[in-house]
């Protein structure tokens, strides 16, 4: 017993303390969402009364277009995920499987480009989109398609890099066999590589989905209209520093918005941890 205490007590104590630290904000946001007074003022950390009034408010109050924000986020993040993987997979395939001149310099350039934090060029992106606005209002500043284009471009470097890493782990025997049989690179890509790589591609698509869902500043800069906003921008503008007034509905809203992301993350744990060591996946 003494020996167990000596060896394991500190491990359990540390783990329990840090676990409490981890859970504290999450616990708090859950009980706040169930607290009918909707205020942040908690005299006790144990709920006295449980009600779903905050959740109802979220879906019925015309001041909070919560469902619209959620739909915007899902549509934008979904479109970015699918399109960026579709486009990125082709480049990753070429980097991983084709032989050509300048491949190493190409990879080095990609490495450099994917390192560039998109936020550094944010004023340039803003000015460029402002100019595009003057001749193509449908894809310029303040539009969701415009934001989508910027996201696609911004995520391309990281996605190709990440995809290449995953694609390298798929054995090349099958496509080499097809090559011997006289298949063209295009045929190998569509008929052999894509079916083989589908699981990997979906993982990267989901990671890209999480990343886009979590993006804040470009969305805030781009989407001015209340009804165009994403959930991150919407909820931020909704509390807008006025925590005491809107805390209850905000808590409910952030829980609903977080649940799908947490589920995706936990189910992809294995891949994310593999990706972590290859370079950061999620900020």
């Amino acid at each position: 017993m003494i020996k167990w205490l000596k060896g394991n007590l500190w491990r359990h104590s540390l783990a329990i303390i840090v676990a409490l630290f981890s859970l504290f904000p999450l616990y708090l946001v859950i009980i706040s969402s169930l607290n009918p007074t909707g205020s942040l003022n908690l005299t006790s950390f144990i709920p006295r009364e449980i009600s779903f009034v905050n959740f109802k408010l979220l879906f019925n109050d015309p001041r909070i277009p919560y469902l619209t924000w959620m739909r915007n986020s899902l549509v934008i993040a979904g479109a970015v995920a699918i399109l960026s993987v579709t486009i990125g997979a082709a480049s990753a395939f070429a980097f991983s499987r084709l032989r050509f001149k300048g491949k190493i310099s190409g990879l080095k350039l990609l490495l450099l480009v994917q390192m560039f934090p998109a936020i550094l060029a944010i004023s340039a992106v803003y000015v460029i989109m402002e100019r595009i606005q003057t001749f193509a209002p449908a894809i310029g500043l303040g539009t969701q398609p415009g934001l989508l284009l910027v996201y696609l471009g911004g995520a391309m470097g990281v996605n190709i890099w990440l995809l290449k890493g995953f694609v390298d782990t798929i054995p090349a025997e099958l496509d080499e066999a097809a090559k011997v049989d006289g298949a063209s690179p295009m045929q190998i890509y569509w008929l052999i590589f894509i079916p083989l790589a589908t699981p990997v591609l979906s993982v990267v698509a989901l990671l890209s989905f999480i990343g886009t869902f979590n993006e804040f500043i470009l969305a805030r800069l781009f989407l001015v209209d209340m009804a165009d906003r994403t959930i991150a921008v919407g909820l931020q503008s909704f509390i807008g520093g006025q925590y005491s007034q809107n805390w209850g509905p905000f808590a409910a809203g952030s829980i609903i918005a977080s649940v799908p992301i947490v589920i995706i993350f936990l189910s992809l744990q294995k891949y994310i941890i593999n990706g972590l060591t290859a370079g950061s996946v999620k900020g």
């Binding site: 981890s22 859970l23 904000p25 909820l235 509390i239 936990l266």
Partner: peptide, 27 residues
Amino acid sequence: ILILPYAMPSVMSILIWGGMFNTEFGA
């Protein structure tokens, strides 16, 4: 439990913490 903070969308977590640091009502 320990990886939960990492699984949460960070924008939401930061906003939640913002409320927790509120002077009058914060946790």
